[in-house]
Simulated assay, not measured.
Amino acid sequence: MPNPTRSTYTPDHLIAGDFPQVKESGVIAAGQQLARGAVLGKVTADGQYKLSLAAAADGSEVPVVVLDADIDTTGGAAPGPLLLTGEVLGSGLTLGAGHTVASVKAALRLLSLFVR
């Protein structure tokens, strides 16, 4: 009789609830090391995503997506998975300077990305 396989449950510290998740790939701008859960804005000029900073003036100041995997683009822009809709835990988000959980919650709610 074979030994039963045991596994360890590791809770997801980003996803909350069971609201439908929609994901897509997008180009993450060069020069960043970002963790899963980073709140990103979209640069108007080239359509690439970068960590949303409230003081930015290139379009990325508006939070629009949440990064769904760690990524390192220090060697150049690269494709990365983006969470477009769903429910996320505020404690699992990485926020750029000038943003708070409350400020990104309001912006992302309009896009069906709910922060709990």
Rank of each mutant, 00 (worst) to 15 (best):
T100C: 09
V43A: 11
S52Q: 08
I28S: 02
D68K: 04
D58K: 01
G26V: 02
V101S: 04
G59H: 06
A69T: 04
P4Q: 11
S112N: 15
T73N: 05
A97C: 05
R109A: 15
A97D: 13
G96A: 07
S91R: 15
T94L: 10
A77V: 08
R36I: 02
Y9F: 14
Q32A: 09
Y49H: 12
R6K: 12
K23C: 06
V27P: 00
A97N: 10
I15Q: 10
G37K: 01
D70G: 11
V65R: 14
R36N: 09
Q21N: 02
L113I: 09
F114R: 11
A102H: 03
D46T: 14
Y49G: 01
E24V: 06
A16G: 04
A106S: 14
R109P: 00
L93R: 00
G86E: 09
E87P: 00
V64Q: 12
V22M: 11
K105H: 03
A77P: 07
L53Q: 13
R116M: 08
A77Y: 12
Y9H: 14
V101I: 15
A54W: 01
L40T: 03
L95C: 08
V66R: 07
E87D: 13
V22K: 10
P79N: 14
L111W: 02
I15Y: 12
